[in-house]
Design a protein around this nucleic acid. Structure first.
Lengths: 121, 121
DNA sequence: TTAGACCTGTGTCTAAGACACATGTCAAGT
DNA sequence: ACTTGACATGTGTCTTAGACACAGGTCTAA
């Protein structure tokens, strides 16, 4: 992707004509980036990881700690989506059985305005 | 929020001094917007719904059809997150037991580069 | 030689706000 | 009356991770 090149994650050497030349290194780096993106590392994370490894250090500890963070975030979002999904499907089924109403000065749509999640006791 | 005002969803009358005056209508409209956002309607959806209701029509059919769409999207994202979560936690536990390795010319971090999701048979 | 197919970097767009900023206005204290 | 500090205003920029477009350069085949 040109995007990664723009960010400086890839630095392809230009051949004489101006076209990019993709060395083995660039190719494997791109693969690395894509693998990392697949695991939900952010581009900033990846930058950090690459920097670490360019200093000759092992990036593994950093990688472990980052995945822990990202996993927690994902878990939170997952729970949020779970709740949202429940709320939405509850709304959908409620609304199927409610009649239409015309809007009023203070109400755009009663379906939404009067929707209350049925609490799970 | 000033954001909604910027988008023209709220049109508060300015009082003489330049401060906004929030009529009942504006207040209830803001509440409507927030309720709709809670149900994962996009701001564009909300705009559409409001337009419909400003024409005097009942927005209910539109609302029902939109929530259906949004719910399907949410379901997809939910499944994606479920898979992602599994992948990430699998990576995490795998990596806990693997040793650090220094980077090489073609490898940034072997944890990521060699990670393969264990397929569920 | 030239047409068409490819490549280049760069600029703008996305969603839903968050944050900052210069300016404007108010109430209270001196 | 004047000033200070606390709020309000609209507007501009920033965020993510790219997608798309565009003007221009370069290659290959006819």
């Amino acid at each position: 992707m040109r995007y990664y090149t723009r960010l400086g994650l890839l630095k392809p050497a230009k051949s004489v004509n101006g076209y990019k030349s993709y060395s083995n290194k660039e190719v494997s780096r791109l693969k690395f980036i894509l693998s990392a993106r697949n695991l939900d590392f952010s581009v900033a994370d990846i930058k950090e990881i690459i920097n670490e490894s360019e200093d000759g250090k092992s990036a593994c500890p950093l990688v472990r700690s980052l995945i822990k963070e990202r996993l927690e975030e994902t878990e939170k979002q997952f729970q949020a989506m779970l709740a949202l999904r429940g709320k939405m499907s509850s709304a959908l089924s409620q609304w199927e059985e409610m009649e239409d109403k015309a809007p009023t000065a203070n109400m755009v749509c009663h379906l939404i305005e009067n929707f209350e999640q049925i609490k799970k006791a």
